[in-house]
Nucleic acid binder design. Structure first.
Lengths: 137, 137
DNA sequence: GTGAACCTTTCCCCGTAGGGGAAGGTCAAG
DNA sequence: CTTGACCTTCCCCTACGGGGAAAGGTTCAC
């Protein structure tokens, strides 16, 4: 298969395919006599895996780690479970942080709407974000 | 003030200060006769603003937009309120997405723990992330 | 055979928000 | 005078490719 056939079939761009090859997520593709990449069918399985792993929030480096595991012969299941559980814990923390930030933003906007633009000092740029009391330290 | 005094006082690195100058968040600092940056006191107000805006999740480009607003004479309050409210809405969506992703990950891990590593096909790399049914399409 | 249309290749720069480090100039203390 | 701390610019690095240039390949119709 040519790159232009693999790409839409796998839901990635040709740019991404060349990139994956460059960083080692895909084995170097065979070339035709004129230098075009010629992919075997199995590349679609590999790409499906990469997309599934990305959808789960794994970085390409982590995905590569799983592939290396696999290529060394051992099923990467344990490793993958660790990654997934680690990701889920990251998300717990992240969601917590973002929720707090969002609440602060809403409070900030609330206060900001009650401030008069005329009372805003140019030096501070914006007294909503940068209240004068912070500057008085 | 020299750059090495400004930096710790404002809670940023000297690298960041030079970067802010380069991208236009800070005006070009005066220089001593030997070429060292010589900052006026007001830079601390500016940096305080930048940090406050960053803490709110604004990108440097957005922060620059606010500063430009300010430097054109008009208080940027309305603009800032829009940014803050937009950010809060982004966060609502983001939190929602991340929550779903986390739930999916937990389910995935649950199922994954019940799968036997022996039943995992090397072509698919990992049957937890890449179930065979997806490949059968 | 040849031109148009479309495909592929490699190459390099772009984005975020700076970090790391090299090579070299400057300043105060000993 | 020298040492060490500080400053300067310069370039490469991050994750994940996107955009586009310049060059060459393939395929079709005419």
């Amino acid at each position: 298969m040519r790159i232009g056939q693999v790409a839409p079939h796998a839901g990635v761009t040709t740019k991404a395919l060349r990139y994956y090859e460059r960083v080692g997520l895909l084995p170097a593709a065979d070339r035709t006599s004129s230098g075009y990449r010629d992919y075997p069918e199995e590349v679609l399985d590999r790409l499906r895996f990469i997309r599934a792993a990305q959808a789960v929030g794994l970085a390409l480096g982590e995905i590569k780690g799983v592939i290396v595991f696999r290529e060394q012969g051992s099923p990467p299941c344990g490793h993958v479970l660790e990654l997934i559980e680690g990701r889920a814990s990251d998300l717990d923390r992240r969601i917590e942080e973002l929720g707090q930030l969002r609440d602060e933003l809403r409070q900030l906007a609330q206060r900001g709407r009650s401030l008069s633009p005329d009372a805003c000092s140019p030096d501070l740029v914006c007294h909503i974000l940068n209240p004068a009391s912070a500057s008085a330290r």
